[in-house]
Structures are given as structure tokens and as C-alpha cells.
Design a protein around this nucleic acid. Structure first.
Lengths: 216, 216
DNA sequence: AATAACATCCCTGTTTTCAGGGATATCTTT
DNA sequence: AAAGATATCCCTGAAAACAGGGATGTTATT
């Protein structure tokens, strides 16, 4: 009988209990540690992993102290034998992309059936990758929308100007604020409109929000 | 020994399991039904409730078929003896306000500790109301921010124009689209700027997004 | 019946944005 | 060394937005 050692990290107590009750049905999984943040998991691995290695860390994305993305990165850099499975509520394409880039072993949304979760765990422990269809969809959507690349094509200064534009400042005001010529800001505005393929201020504002440059 | 009959509704299987495992520790709670949508709960109550009444329905907000808000409304209109407790991930002030208006008995966020959940259930079964502090905060914030009232102060037509403005249409284009004079749209734009207390298109666009009039 | 809110339209004048050209200097990458 | 991206600045003219007035008829609400 196989015996796998797992760690679960989630700051939602109720959800943790849900995972535990699902995993308790499987005798071959030993839950070595549960944590409500990534830091404690990282700490545990750093101290104890060499003695009795952890096979799999199941983690949420949004957690205090050390979130799932950072935790995955840490594990993949320092504990290469330990697999990682992300189980999360929200999944934007950026998050999925970052995680796959950091070599995460699987990603299952929280609204998945428990059967799928168990399948994901099994696959990963066998050395395969497991991504739910909805996660793949999000990933592909992110890949084939030029949105992401557009955003990345903006320089620091351009983002700065875009932010101020979205904050309802006029060209003149922005020029004064940045100690630049009015013409310079006009150029930026023009370039932004053309780069982001929008028509006017409204479009720029929407992009600024998408980029997280403005609060609302 | 008391015996309470509960129903749980949540479309997230894992979360349902979490709730179940928490409630199974309490012998006095009998889980009569679990459902992944509101409709099945409503149906069950409509058929069986008079024989053996249900004491409490624990429900998520976002569910297919019949969401938590509608389910609560249905229960409060047709099964007044059945208490309701909402357990949800996201909680905007509108949702909280609607639910309290519809006389929900409690509201606990999903990231609450299991102790708090059990306390909420106990309180409600005793006939009290239970709202987590974070829920109260959201509620109060919604009450005292003029944002909500501002949004509600917009007429249907104003919202329609605002939407088109945020979709990057010019005044002339909107006029053509709605078969109205350019001057009319200009008036709307002016009124919107003054009502929403913003300076320009950027501000209007941000409000349109907040209102959910435009996708992004 | 009166008031308020809504929807519609009009005018004038100023400011800002948008579109379309350029130019120059720096810095990085090939 | 050349090419490309970045940051900066300039100009013109048209289109659009913004500010500030007003007006009229309809529909709710009181």
C-alpha cells in the first residue's frame, strides 16, 4: 500500500475542512500539515522536507503572508521533488500563466466535483500534470487575446500617464504634475490610444482599470 | 436532546463537504437535504415542509437555477418558520442589503472560522439574527456611501446613455443610435457628470463599470 | 391640482481631445 | 555600428467634450 504525505494550505477554515473530509476517505494520503498561509508551509518544508519528503502541497492562491503563487515558486525552486496543486476560487489568465510558468503540477477550481479533485491528486502523484478544463480555457483565452501582450508593451512612463488620464486629469494637468510639456502628454495619449486600439478616453480608462492602475 | 432539521445548498461540492463535516460533529443537527441549486431546495420545502418542518436552510448566494437571494425570498414568503443562513464568498453591499430587506436570519462569509459558523447556526435556531462583523461592515459602508444612492438616482435612459458613452461612442453616434438629437445626448452627458460628481469621460466610464453597464 | 421627476430639445462659447504629421536624444539589443 | 524602443518635444486643424445657461411636454407622485 502506497503512502503519500500531503500538506494543505488554505485560509478558509471551512474549505480546509472540506478538503480534509474528502482526503480522509483515502487511506493512502497522510495529511502531514494544514496551514492558513503559505509561510508556514514554506517553513515546514525548509526544516523537515529532507528527512521525510512531502509528496504534494495543495494550496489556495489568495492567502495572507505568502500566497499560493509565491508558495509554488518557493517549492519549485527549493523542493523540486514536492508536487503542487492549486485549488482556487478565482482564476484570471495572468495567475494561471504565472503558475504554469513556475511549473505548477495542477490547477483545479474550487467548484470542481470531489471526484475531479481526487483524480487530479492521483494524476499528479503519478507524475502527470492535471488542469481542469475551465482552467485550460482561461489559459488559452489569455494566450490568444492580444490583451495581455498589449498591456505588457506599455512602458513605465506610458502606464504612469495612462493612470493619470484615468484619474480624470486633463493633459495640461498631467504635464504640470510630471514637469513635462503638454505636447509630450499629448503624444503619450495618442500612442496609448493607438497601442491599445481604443477610440478615446473611455477606452483608455477601461484599460487602466483592467491593468489595475486605478482603484475603480 | 434537541433535534434540528437542516438543509444545505451550495453548488461547490468541496465546500458542501466542508460544511457537512463540520455539522456532523453536532449530533443535534440532522442534514435532511443537500442541493447544488436553490430550485431543489424550494421544491423540497414546497412539498415536504408542512409535514416535518425544516428549521434552517444554509445557502450560498451564487447558484444556478435559483440563487441564494431568490431562495431566501421564497422561503420567507412561503415557509415563514424556516430560518435562513447565507454563507457566501463574495458580499457586496447590494446583496447584503437585499437579503436583510428580505429578512434573512444570518450571513457569514465563507472564510469564517468553523466556530463562528456554529455560533451563527446556534443563534439563529434560538431565534436570533447573526451577521459577521465583516458583513455588518459591508452593509454600513453601503449605507453611508453615497455611491449606491447616486447610482439608484439614474433613470433608465440615463443609464442607457451612460453605457453607450462608456462603450466609446461619441455624442453624435449615440444620438443617431437612439434617434435623438445631439443636444439631448449632450444634456444627458452633462447631467451624468454632475449627478455622479465626476469631471469627464474617464469618471463616467469608471461609474459605468461599477454599475456593470459595460463588460470591462 | 400641484409638484417633482423625466425625457426631450436648443444655444453659446471655451477647453480638451483626437488625428496626423514631425523632430531629437538616449539607451538597449543585435 | 545599426536598428529599435523609449522619452521627450513641437505644430496644425478638426472634432468632441464640457460649462452654463434655458425651454417644453409627459408621466408619476402627493
Amino acid at each position: 500500500m502506497k503512502n503519500y504525505r500531503l500538506i494543505i494550505a488554505d485560509d478558509h477554515k471551512m474549505f480546509l475542512d472540506g478538503l480534509l473530509s474528502i482526503l480522509e476517505s483515502k487511506k493512502e494520503y497522510e495529511i502531514v500539515l494544514t496551514a492558513n498561509n503559505g509561510k508556514n508551509v514554506a517553513k515546514y518544508l525548509d526544516i523537515n522536507n529532507s528527512k521525510e519528503p512531502i509528496d504534494l502541497v495543495i494550496t489556495d492562491v489568495n492567502m495572507p503572508d505568502l500566497n499560493g503563487i509565491e508558495l509554488n515558486k518557493h517549492i519549485k525552486s527549493n523542493h523540486s521533488k514536492t508536487k503542487t496543486l492549486v485549488v482556487s476560487m478565482l482564476h484570471d489568465s495572468m495567475t494561471v500563466q504565472t503558475l504554469t510558468k513556475d511549473n505548477v503540477d495542477g490547477y483545479v477550481p474550487k467548484n470542481a466535483e470531489k471526484e475531479e479533485l481526487l483524480e487530479a491528486i492521483e494524476s499528479i502523484l503519478k507524475g502527470e500534470k492535471y488542469f481542469s478544463q475551465s482552467i485550460k480555457d482561461v489559459y488559452l483565452k489569455g494566450m490568444f487575446s492580444n490583451e495581455q501582450t498589449l498591456i505588457e508593451s506599455l512602458s513605465k512612463r506610458e502606464k504612469e500617464v495612462l493612470k493619470l488620464i484615468a484619474q480624470e486629469h486633463t493633459t495640461q494637468e498631467i504635464a504640470d504634475k510630471l514637469f513635462l510639456s503638454k505636447h509630450t502628454i499629448e503624444s503619450y495619449r495618442k500612442n496609448l490610444i493607438s497601442k491599445l486600439e481604443v477610440r478615446n478616453l473611455a477606452g483608455l480608462t477601461k484599460y487602466a482599470i483592467k491593468l489595475g492602475l486605478v482603484d475603480d
